[in-house]
């Protein structure tokens, strides 16, 4: 029993780090542009399909395929920002609806190109480590490690670099930041594109763990938004924390209670935390 719980605790952390990387995009975009980019789920799906295409069809090495997919997704993200998101800054509802419209467009494009049949990547790193009677799939550990590195890297970049501090300053107080000479528009574009790149990376690595379909983004963006809210919007490490809390509560919850209620375990947690701390677990901190 202990093994079962410990195993699911670890799995929850791994799954949670995937929620976390998308949640980080949600949090950053929301902090700087005031919109919740629901399309990040669709960007993740694009990243997954891009990786699949480059790796399984064009036969590039896996890391290169992921990098290629991330670059491709960022380019799409940049174009979307220039054409669409730029006009919804600060308007939550419009941003929400535009991103939902974008999801339909992306899904339809992928559907017509690759059909609804699921794709399953050739295994990148099969097998599992066996520790104390528990099996830990190698690929999941690697993916989790990459996510952690990226999230902590983002944290360092935000606190240690000029651009990062500018972004943080802007999220704290837009007017003051503009007065200090921060070029707001460019900053916002950078953050929007970076968020899509994170989603693309999430998707690229996702594809090495699970099979992919055009609809995979929906479930993950909801989790990511929950994670971001749970943590408190605006917190980088919190996004990871929120993701992990969700992942763990779902996995552990499913062990003790019916897994049909899986999604509810995280939600109950979310409601509970918001009632105690209305601005999220990690508040308005970085």
């Amino acid at each position: 029993m202990l093994q079962l719980i410990l195993g699911q605790l670890l799995n929850g952390i791994i799954v949670g780090s995937l929620y976390g990387i998308i949640a980080l995009g949600v949090t950053l975009t929301f902090g700087l542009t005031g919109i919740v980019n629901f399309a990040l789920g669709a960007f993740m799906m694009l990243g997954a399909y891009g990786t699949w295409y480059l790796y399984d069809v064009a036969h590039l090495p896996y890391p290169l395929a992921v990098v290629g997919a991330v670059l491709g997704v960022s380019a799409v993200g940049y174009v979307s920002d220039m054409l669409l998101f730029r006009f919804t800054r600060g308007n939550l509802v419009n941003g929400l609806l535009v991103s939902i419209g974008l999801i339909s467009v992306f899904e339809a494009l992928v559907l017509s190109a690759f059909t609804t049949t699921p794709k399953d990547l050739t295994y990148v790193l099969p097998g599992a480590f066996q520790v104390a009677g528990m099996f830990l799939p190698k690929i999941k550990l690697v993916v989790c490690a990459v996510f952690l590195v990226i999230i902590f890297g983002t944290y360092l970049a935000l606190t240690r670099t000029w651009l990062g501090r500018a972004a943080f300053a802007y999220a704290q107080n837009p007017e003051a930041a503009t007065l200090m000479g921060i070029r707001t528009e460019r900053l916002q574009t950078i953050v929007v594109v970076y968020s899509t790149a994170l989603a693309g990376l999430g998707g690229g690595l996702y594809a090495s763990m699970y099979s992919i379909e055009p609809t995979i983004g929906t479930a993950y963006i909801l989790k990511a938004v929950e994670a971001a809210i749970l943590a408190g919007v605006g917190s980088v490490i919190g996004a990871l924390g929120g993701g992990i809390i969700l992942g763990v509560s779902e996995n552990i919850g499913s062990v003790f209670f019916p897994s049909a209620f899986r999604d509810a375990y995280g939600l109950v947690f979310l409601i509970g935390i918001l009632l105690v701390r209305p601005s999220g677990l990690f508040g308005d901190r970085l």
Binding site: L84, G101, S104, E107, S112
Partner: peptide, 20 residues
């Protein structure tokens, strides 16, 4: 089927951006 979904999305985006 595919294009119907795409069109739905496009209309949504158009409405929001052109006639907010």
């Amino acid at each position: 089927a595919e294009f119907r979904i795409a069109l739905y999305g496009a209309i949504l985006i158009f409405v929001i951006l052109v006639m907010p």
